[in-house]
Amino acid sequence: MSGHVHKDYTGAKFGMWLFLFTEVLLFGGLFILYSVYLARYPKEFITAGKELNVWFGGGNTLVLLTSSLFVAVSITALRRGAKKLCLGLLGGTIACAAIFMINKYFEWSAKIHHGIYPGSAHLKELQPGEMVFFNIYYLTTGLHGIHVVIGGLVLAWAMLLIKSDRINADDWVILENAGLYWHLVDLIWIFIFPLYYLILH
């Protein structure tokens, strides 16, 4: 009755990796922008970088590293048949995504309250190098934040598929690929944190 459904796991995963490479090059371009301007305006970058709050950046680093652990463990749990544990871990990951964005909301609110946002009157009074720093900061962390939101939505979709057993212990490549995307979000933050929040302190 039901014919053999061909599943190409290698192809599915390889396709995901190819997509992730384009993401790496996208953020790589932003990091090149950062490093070129750091070389041009080292002093202004130090002054501007001191405005960033290490606690927000560091806290969000811990949140993302932990969320990455949850996703990785959830795949093992699913394959061992522990569906409830898997769903719990994915719920934890989405909670981490929410905590990350709430932190970002408070962080950005404080900055914007102090008149630091792209195109603000205050920014125009600063040195050109400081203006560049904040513009790249908003561009990079904003694009990363969009990735966090998308990653959370993709994982929520994967949770629904697990609930209805469309993702199961024998067929989990969608969760695997969703997880790969989430790890990429973590990877990019691993570089954003020291470059923007730490290097200049």
Partner: peptide, 16 residues
Amino acid sequence: ALSIATLKSALVVAVF
């Protein structure tokens, strides 16, 4: 900072 970040990413890519 870049060396430590590279080491961290290597761990994430290799195992996670």
